[in-house]
């Protein structure tokens, strides 16, 4: 989508299919995703619903929205929800898409949290959460390496990964300072250069966790 001439399809906000999509349908669609996306990979759920089933977006538009989501702060799941909701029906669409995506999980998390707080000494609950916590470490490492294996092949990338990791995990530098120093440094190292054109990297795009 870097070259508009190669992508003549009009943006969805310019009318067409989006005129017919009701706010209720937006809410219910995202509610279904929010209530069923267990175990990570919410992007895969979003694509199956928004591109394949509902056809509210084509693949290019989906990937363009995902590119924005990943470049910005916030979770892919919620960034994608508000961006797609906004493109379909403006701010009300964004609010309802966000509400649908988060409300089922929020209600369950709150219920579990209240239960947890009122049973703090319960050995069974502690044992279950300990097991889930340990399993999560394996899940997090697998997802990180699946997304990052390309970054671990080039020396410059490995250096930046290691620098970030050491600063955050071992030197305990606040994240703000890490982002404000290593971020510009990395972008400068990859600055646009006529002799070294960059191509977009979309590997691992479906593997982002539902974090």
């Amino acid at each position: 989508m870097a070259d508009p001439a190669s992508n003549p399809a009009p943006p969805p906000s310019d009318g067409g299919v989006s005129e017919k999509i009701s706010l209720a349908e937006i809410f219910l669609t995202f509610l279904a995703i929010g209530a069923t996306s267990f175990g990570g990979g919410v992007v895969a759920y979003l694509r199956a619903s928004l591109v394949t089933k509902k056809q509210w977006l084509d693949d290019e538009e989906f990937l363009a929205a995902l590119e924005i989501s990943q470049a910005l702060p916030g979770l892919n799941a919620t960034n994608m929800s508000v961006i797609v909701g906004d493109r379909l029906r403006g701010i009300p669409g964004a609010v309802l898409a966000f509400a649908g995506m988060t409300l089922p999980g929020a209600a369950i998390v709150l219920a579990l949290g209240i239960f947890y707080a009122s049973n703090s000494g319960n050995a069974n609950i502690n044992a279950v959460l300990k097991g889930v916590g340990a399993a999560s470490v394996g899940l997090l490492l697998a997802v990180t390496l699946q997304i990052g294996h390309k970054q671990l092949e080039h020396r410059l990338d490995v250096t930046l990964v290691a620098l970030t990791l050491v600063l955050v995990s071992f030197v305990h530098v606040p994240l703000l300072y890490v982002l404000l120093t290593v971020g510009p440094l990395a972008i400068l190292l990859y600055r646009p250069h006529p002799a070294r054109p960059l191509s977009p990297d979309r590997s691992g795009i479906d593997k982002k966790p539902a974090d």
């Binding site: 470490v137 990180t144 997304i147 990052g148 990791l165 600055r191 990297d201």
Partner: peptide, 21 residues
């Protein structure tokens, strides 16, 4: 610069996710 930002931030995100793990 859009691609430069994407390419530059990718290893930082991987480093941060490892730190999260």
């Amino acid at each position: 610069w859009r691609l430069a930002i994407q390419r530059g931030m990718a290893p930082i995100v991987v480093g941060l996710m490892l730190a999260g793990t």
